[in-house]
C-alpha cells in the first residue's frame, strides 16, 4: 500500500554561488559577530580525538585545478551504525594554501537498512559551489572494509567503483579526492 501521490513540485535548486560561506560558515571567513560557532564544526561532540579518523582530499575541476571555494557537507552514522539527529553532520571548506579539506570524524559502522540489507560503512558527502546549478551527492567508502555486498557498490562497475573508495594512507587516515569532470570523474548520485 502506498500513500497518496504528491501534489506539489519540489522547489528548484539554484547555484549556491561563490559566497555561500557568508550564510553557511561565516566564522570560517572571519564574520565572527553573528553565530558563536559554525554549523558542523565538529561532527561528533561526544567523542575524543584519539577515537577519530581523518579523511583528507581535494575537489578538482575539469582543468585539474584544486578548488578552494566549495563547501563540502558530510553526514553519517556512528561507529555502531546508529544515526542520531544531533551527531554526524560536518561542514568543510578546503584550506586556501593546501587546497585540501580535512574531515576528522568517527569511522562509521555498517548498518542494516530499511531495505533489510547490510550496508558497508560509508560517509555521505555533498558539494555545493559556484558553477554547480545543483548540489552534488556522493559517498566515501573505505578500502579496508568488506565492500562486496554493499547495495550501492554492487550496482556500479569496477572502474567507477574505485573512485568511491578512500585509500588508507596510514593508521586512521584516508585519502579521498573528488573529480568534478574528466577521465576520473567521480560517481555522483541521484539520492
Amino acid at each position: 500500500m502506498e500513500n497518496a501521490k504528491e501534489n506539489l513540485d519540489e522547489t528548484p535548486f539554484q547555484t549556491a554561488g561563490p559566497f555561500l560561506h557568508i550564510g553557511c560558515m561565516p566564522n570560517a571567513i572571519k564574520i565572527n559577530r553573528i553565530y558563536q560557532n559554525d554549523l558542523g564544526e565538529i561532527p561528533f561532540m561526544n567523542k575524543k580525538d584519539a577515537d577519530l579518523i581523518t579523511i583528507e582530499g581535494s575537489v578538482f575541476d575539469g582543468n585539474g585545478v584544486a578548488l578552494d571555494d566549495v563547501m563540502i557537507e558530510t553526514w553519517q552514522c556512528d561507529e555502531k551504525g546508529q544515526f542520531t539527529e544531533e551527531n554526524g553532520f560536518a561542514r568543510l571548506m578546503p584550506n586556501h594554501l593546501t587546497k585540501k579539506f580535512t574531515l576528522k570524524t568517527v569511522k562509521p559502522g555498517s548498518y542494516i537498512g530499511y531495505d533489510g540489507k547490510t550496508h558497508s560503512p560509508y560517509v555521505s558527502l555533498s558539494i555545493s559551489s559556484r558553477g554547480l546549478n545543483m548540489t552534488l551527492n556522493t559517498r566515501v567508502y573505505f578500502e579496508d572494509d568488506e565492500l562486496k555486498n554493499d547495495p550501492l557498490l554492487s550496482i556500479i562497475d569496477e572502474v567507477n567503483k574505485k573512485n568511491l573508495i578512500a585509500k588508507k594512507i596510514k593508521k586512521n587516515s584516508y585519502l579521498f579526492d573528488i573529480f568534478l569532470q574528466g577521465d576520473k570523474e567521480t560517481i555522483f548520485l541521484d539520492i
Binding site: F83, Y114, L132, L180, Q181, I187, L189
Partner: peptide, 20 residues
C-alpha cells in the same frame, strides 16, 4: 569546467537519505 558530464546513479533511498 565544474558541471559533471556523466549521468547520475539512481538507487533506492537508504537510511542516510531518509534520516536527519
Amino acid at each position: 569546467f565544474r558541471a559533471p558530464k556523466n549521468k547520475k546513479i539512481s538507487f533506492s533511498s537508504s537510511n542516510t537519505e531518509i534520516l536527519g
